[in-house]
Design a protein around this nucleic acid. Structure first.
Lengths: 205, 205
DNA sequence: ACCTGAACACCGTTCAAGT
DNA sequence: ACCTGAACACCGTTCAAGT
């Protein structure tokens, strides 16, 4: 049975969607390739490397073709679209945000390249290197944190809380959301706008 | 050997600092209490519950005494202090951010309470329920994402990159940081200020 | 009520040996 | 070059049986 790196990643990805991150196991991947677990170590250094490649595999289809800001494009619109695109990439697979955050900037090549593209796009719009970096890192941190929480499986505790409708502000917020048909996507956009607005202000000084 | 829930959490916390999150294992905790692994299940439902308690244990010393905004306090100063305090709680133990994010709002009672306190403090400063929620959730997502990345162990890849000082913008940023003695804390504050600035702007409309 | 002892069904990783 | 076979040192979880 000849196998290659790509097959391993593809199988791992499908396993991620079916069983979640904790279900992604070298032994299960090997089994689906009709191969013993030890055989994977010829194609992959260890499990962490597989996880890193998983992060890249999530990001690649969304960002290999992604263009930097064009001169006539306002930077805030471009950055907004880029962050929403990143969120979509994360949402494209179960626990995607966790996978990407787990790899981090140091490991996920795609993520480092994306950061490069953002900083460059902001600088061409008049940001200093530091301003561009801070805006970029703030936006990315926000996306990370937001989507990780968004993808966290609803627990028994949170369901119980929602059901019992206590007099907490959080349950009032949930209630208001239902009435006004607020979506999680709207929350995400609104938070992102806060950051973009802050960056605009900073830029004028 | 009589043991109790508190001891389990204390041991787990020390294990977290010594060996990191993946070193926190029911069997190791049990061994340090001179008890068989199965015995822990009398005090704890499963490993996840222990992890949730770990998140609370990280937050409690920082937030049980934490006060809501006082009338004479500007909301932005109070929120800034609160977010910096949260970051310090996360940094107080190895991989603290990951532990807290892993528990999430649904599991870490302390975190849900903190959110409650923030929303309430912002509303008393004139925010609508929705404005307060969005500002709170944006700030918290940012802190999450920032500190998770901050605490990610530097990898071989990132060290190699730093050493080879390629012509990437990211390495230029690292370089600039060293020259100007920028700290990670300054980066955190600057990003936070972006969000606070954006929230101020939003409030005026 | 609280723990032992032992099992069950898993993990990642290594490595001689095969082909 | 690439995989088998088998081992090693672990995991979380369950549960009868002890005290």
């Amino acid at each position: 049975m000849k196998i290659c790196r790509e097959q391993i990643i593809t199988i791992a990805l499908s396993l991620l969607d079916r069983e979640g991150l904790e279900g992604v196991t070298l032994r299960k991947v090997a089994a689906q390739l009709h191969v013993h677990a030890g055989a994977l170590y010829w194609h992959v250094q260890n499990k962490q490397e597989l996880l890193d490649e998983l992060a890249n595999a999530l990001l690649s289809p969304y960002f290999v073709q992604w263009e930097g800001r064009t001169p006539e494009q306002p930077w805030s619109k471009w950055l907004q679209a880029t962050c929403e695109h990143l969120r979509e990439a994360m949402l494209s697979h179960r626990e995607g945000a966790r996978v990407i955050a787990g790899a981090g900037l140091g490991r996920a090549v795609q993520l480092a390249q994306l950061m490069e593209l953002i900083v460059q796009s902001l600088m061409s719009a008049g940001f200093s290197l530091r301003q561009a970096f801070l805006t970029c890192s703030t936006a990315l941190s926000y996306v990370y944190g937001f989507v990780i929480e968004e993808q966290a499986a609803p627990t028994n505790a949170s369901i119980k809380q929602a059901r019992s409708s206590e007099e907490t502000l959080i349950s009032k917020i949930q209630h208001e959301k239902r009435i006004h048909h607020y979506t999680t996507e709207m929350d995400f956009r609104a938070g992102l706008e806060l950051i973009l607005e802050g960056a605009k202000q900073q830029l004028q000084k």
